[in-house]
Nucleic acid binder design. Structure first.
Lengths: 357, 357
DNA sequence: ATGAAAGCGCTAACAC
DNA sequence: GTGTTAGCGCTTTCAT
């Protein structure tokens, strides 16, 4: 292992150039020579150092991965998909996480670029307004965005707008009128915006009044009192909550349970991500699913195509289909006891669904 | 960015050697010169190429990570912990996953070694009988194992034996006698063995008869019929299931639900891993918790200490404390209806707890 | 305090 | 078909 191409050359009795050729272009070298070189390689357990190759300006076979976090299975699954193909094709992955921090995004990209990665697969907070990506377009390595929902850049994602409105329409079809959207505090992302836009769209289309997303602190053990108050408000309480991601939905479910609210009898819940563990909850979490492993694989393939220079005319943004998982957390409003403790049944649910200022 | 140390030297009017010193040993260079060089660096947006440094035989500031999978949050969390410290300390991470396959473990280690990583953090299937690790001990890069429960090698883990027996004792304290351990089919790992040994120990200590672990196919959508038959067998059915990991526990819970078995009324469940999402299940999953983020961080620190050469006398294996989460999936046997459908109450539960051949 | 030069492991002209 | 040589970007003696 510590042996170099020089050692092999000496051992085989040829020059290092011949050894190099024997490795990289076997057909250009005399079969007899080839055999001897190969024997020497065997004997010395020689493996070409990627470092030498990389420095020489060759292909580094290195791909940089930039993700917000691995704590969210969405990204871990994407990475899994990427890794499958990378391993298959002999590429190495350099991983950096950003915690949704733009500073760290910049740092990661610079580090990776300095490392001469051949390409970058990344998920950034906001793809549209990101100066870094313009820089990459200009002279950085090739990249593909993952889960960033933008038409302007090379990306693989679901149609968040459409997915969200599909989900909300489904809630409406189940008789819900007062539907509130919940989002994480860090949710200034393009996809969060798209999801809220989709929610808004579906609401308006049904003649209902959409509300701004209610922000939830992700890390808190319990729901903030004002949030809880809002959710349980006798007059205005929503009958369904659309959570901008599944982790958030789970946190909210726990919070509600702590507040003695029953899901779905008192309130229905729809998540977003389709995390498989959501199905194991009781009741199973209804959710809009994204094919994360596939998104990772597609991002890889798109990146490779760009590197090879194929499909230069392929559409920038690839949209993969989302799915709708109708789990047990959604109750038809007809089946829902309209009255909660101390609250009389009222027809106003059917009125306009206005939620809050 | 595409500028090299040469460009900087030219721009500043000094030799590349001086620029190099200005970067790596600022105190050895004239303050005025230093200022000029720094200005040039700014102007050209120069970042030293890691590649050049690495090739020169210097520190690569590269650490290899080898994990079975990222689909299991246990490893994703460990990686998260590692990444935190790596980013802080300016190291880059090269990641490879193995899917518990020894071939791929070998390949990953060789790839990483060729890449001149300064160190390796890995989780292998079986640390004790692994020739690769002996090779690493001999001349590989320094490494630290994570979650591999062995005393013979540098590692960070919980005491799986003790953790398992703690858990099983807890079940026994709740009145359970027929306790069966379930393991994944891929579970020929050292930690799975330790967990089963811990189970066996606790059972015997209580005068009960332990059974071999029942293997469950992880990926199947439903529990295999023979497994289900075994779990529901009128005469011998266990009152509690100890699952060797949480993901498995969740799959089993779903399978049981499909078979109309109630948890914990009909059967109690204890998992292993302490996945935070387990708390969100209903009922919340009882589990033995491992501090994954901390394990990742500790592995990092141990590796760094080894690289620097400190603590050469530190104990090889670091054991972190596990926790016991007593969730809703465990019922005291006294409260359990002893009779299930078509089965009369019987005192034999109190007898010897024998489970199966 | 600074520069010249060697060399890390490899590939790619360019000779022969 | 094979060898010679230059150089990728950097650090590090060894001189000056």
């Amino acid at each position: 292992m510590t042996s170099t191409i020089k050692d092999v050359a000496a051992h085989a009795g040829f020059s290092i150039a011949t050894v190099s050729r024997a490795i990289n272009a076997p057909h250009t070298v005399n079969p007899v020579t080839l055999a001897k070189v190969r024997e020497a390689i065997q004997a010395l357990k020689f493996h070409p150092s990627p470092l030498g190759r990389q420095l020489r300006g060759e292909r580094t076979r290195l791909i940089g991965i930039v993700l917000p976090t691995l704590a969210n299975p969405v990204f871990a699954e994407c990475l899994q998909g990427i890794d499958e193909l990378a391993a298959e094709q002999g590429f190495r992955l350099m991983l950096m996480t950003t915690q949704y921090d733009e500073q760290r995004e910049r740092h990661a990209i610079e580090t990776l670029r300095a490392q001469r990665v051949e390409g970058l697969i990344l998920t950034v907070a906001d793809a549209d307004t990101h100066p870094l990506l313009d820089e990459l377009d200009a002279d950085g390595p090739l990249y593909v965005l993952m889960h960033n929902d933008t038409k302007r850049r090379p990306s693989v994602s679901v149609d968040n707008h459409r997915a969200a409105s599909d989900g909300v329409r489904m809630l409406i079809a189940h008789g819900h009128r007062r539907i509130l959207m919940l989002a994480g505090t860090l949710a200034a992302s393009d996809r969060a915006r798209q999801r809220h836009a989709g929610y808004t769209h579906a609401m308006q289309q049904a003649g209902l009044t959409p509300a701004p997303a209610l922000e939830i602190d992700f890390n808190a053990d319990e729901l903030a009192p004002e949030v809880l108050a809002h959710l349980t408000d006798v007059q205005q309480s929503p009958t369904a909550l659309f959570c901008s991601n599944d982790l958030l939905a789970m946190v909210v479910m726990r919070g509600l349970r702590g507040a003695r609210m029953r899901v779905p009898q008192d309130v229905s819940i729809l998540g977003f991500d389709g995390l498989s563990m959501g199905e194991l909850l009781a009741p199973a979490l209804a959710s809009i699913g994204t094919p994360n492993r596939e998104i990772g694989r597609a991002a890889w393939q798109k990146l490779m195509a760009r590197i090879v220079g194929e499909y230069a005319d392929a559409p920038l943004a690839l949209t993969l289909p989302h799915t709708l998982r109708e789990g047990g957390t959604i109750a038809a409003i007809a089946n829902t006891p309209l009255a909660r403790a101390g609250q009389a049944p009222h027809a106003s649910r059917e009125s306009d669904g206005a939620l809050l200022p």
